[in-house]
Design a protein around this nucleic acid. Structure first.
Lengths: 181, 181
DNA sequence: CAAGATTGACGTTTCAATCTTC
DNA sequence: GAAGATTGAAACGTCAATCTTG
C-alpha cells in the first residue's frame, strides 16, 4: 500500500465499513445503469420510465384506477409529485381523473383507452429493456438470490409491502379493455 | 423453467419478466429506503447525501482534489450537475475551486479545512446510517453475494469501474488524461 | 477541431401552505 | 381536527449552447 494510502484516514477507516459501502455504491450504480437502459428502450414508444410505471400500476389495479395517494406510495414519490405527474399524463391523454362517489376528498387516476394501448405497446419493449439490462447477465438463481437479499433489507427497514414489491405482471391483461364513456 | 413452459413463449416470457420486474422494483425501493435513512442520519451533521458523497470522494482522492469531470463521473451526474453542486458547496465553504497549472481548461474541486472537518464528523454518523439501513439485516455472505450479483449486472452493461464501484480502491488520478498514441 | 467547464432555459420533484371534505 | 389533494415557491438536475484553452 502506498504512502498516500497510509496517510489517508479514509482508506483505513473504510475497512470498518468494509464491503457495505461498496454494496451501497453498487446498488446506486446498478440502479442508474438500469434506469438509463430502460429509459432508452421506452423512448421507442414515447414513454418516460415514470409514465410507464404509472400506466403499469394502473393497468394491474382493480378497475384500472388508483387513488392519488395510493399511486404516490406505489411510485415512491410525494403527494405533490403524483399530482404533477398525473397532470402531465392527463394532458397527454394517458390517464384521466375520476371522482369518488363515496368520498369526495378522493381523486382516482384511471387508465384511458389511449393509456391502455400505450402500456400494451410498451410491454414487449420494456421486457426487452429489462432483458438487456438485467436478464442477459444473470441466471434465474441470481435473480432469486438478489430478490431474497433485497427483501431482507426492505423487511429490516419495515418497508416490505407485497403489493409494491412483488409484482404479478399477469394481472395486466386479465380484463378486456373497458368501455369508456 | 420446464420444457413445456419454454415452448410456450407467452408463459415463459411472463414468468421470467415477473421475476425480473420484481427484482427491479426491489432494487428501486431498497435504494429509496437506504437513501432516506442515510439522509436522515446525515442531517445531524448538516450534510445532504450528495454533499457527503462529494466530500467522501475528495477525501480519498490524491491531494484531496478531483477534476470537475472526474468528480461528475464518480457521482453519476452530468457535467453541469457537478458545476451546480460544487457552486453550492463552495458557497457553503465545504470545497474550493482550484486552477490547474498545466492545463488551464481544468478546474479542480478541492477539500477545504472546513470540508475535511465535516466529512470526518460525518464518518461515524454515516457508518451508523449504513449499519441501520443495511448491515444490520444482512450477514457478510449476503453482502458479498449482493456485490457479486450487482457486479455482474454492471459488467454486463460495461459500467464496472473499479474506481467508482470499489470503495477500497485508494488512488484517484489527479493528473489530466494521458494521451494515448 | 476537441476537451473541459460554465451558463441559460427548462423539466421534474419536494416542502409548506391551502383548500375541501370527512 | 384529520385526511386527501392541489398549489406556489424553491431546489435540483439535465440538455444544448457557449466560452476558453489545448
Amino acid at each position: 500500500v502506498s504512502t498516500f494510502a497510509r496517510q489517508n484516514r479514509f482508506v483505513s477507516a473504510d475497512q470498518e465499513l468494509g464491503q457495505r459501502l461498496g454494496a451501497w455504491m453498487n446498488l446506486l450504480q446498478a440502479d442508474a445503469v438500469m434506469a438509463e437502459v430502460l429509459e432508452r428502450h421506452l423512448e421507442a414508444v414515447g414513454l418516460s420510465l415514470a409514465q410507464h410505471e404509472v400506466l403499469m400500476r394502473l393497468a394491474r389495479a382493480e378497475r384500472n384506477r388508483l387513488r392519488m395517494l395510493d399511486l404516490a406510495t406505489l411510485l415512491l414519490v410525494s403527494k405533490s409529485g403524483v399530482t404533477r405527474l398525473v397532470d402531465r399524463m392527463e394532458a397527454a391523454g394517458l390517464v384521466r381523473r375520476e371522482a369518488c362517489p363515496t368520498d369526495r376528498r378522493v381523486v382516482y387516476a384511471a387508465l384511458t383507452d389511449e393509456g391502455r394501448r400505450r402500456i400494451e405497446a410498451a410491454r414487449p419493449v420494456f421486457a426487452r429493456g429489462l432483458e438487456a439490462a438485467f436478464s442477459r447477465h444473470l441466471d434465474d438463481r441470481d435473480v432469486a438470490t438478489l430478490r431474497a437479499i433485497l427483501r431482507k433489507v426492505l423487511e429490516g427497514n419495515g418497508q416490505w409491502q407485497e403489493r409494491r414489491c412483488s409484482p404479478t405482471y399477469e394481472a395486466e391483461s386479465a380484463e378486456p379493455a373497458r368501455v369508456v364513456s
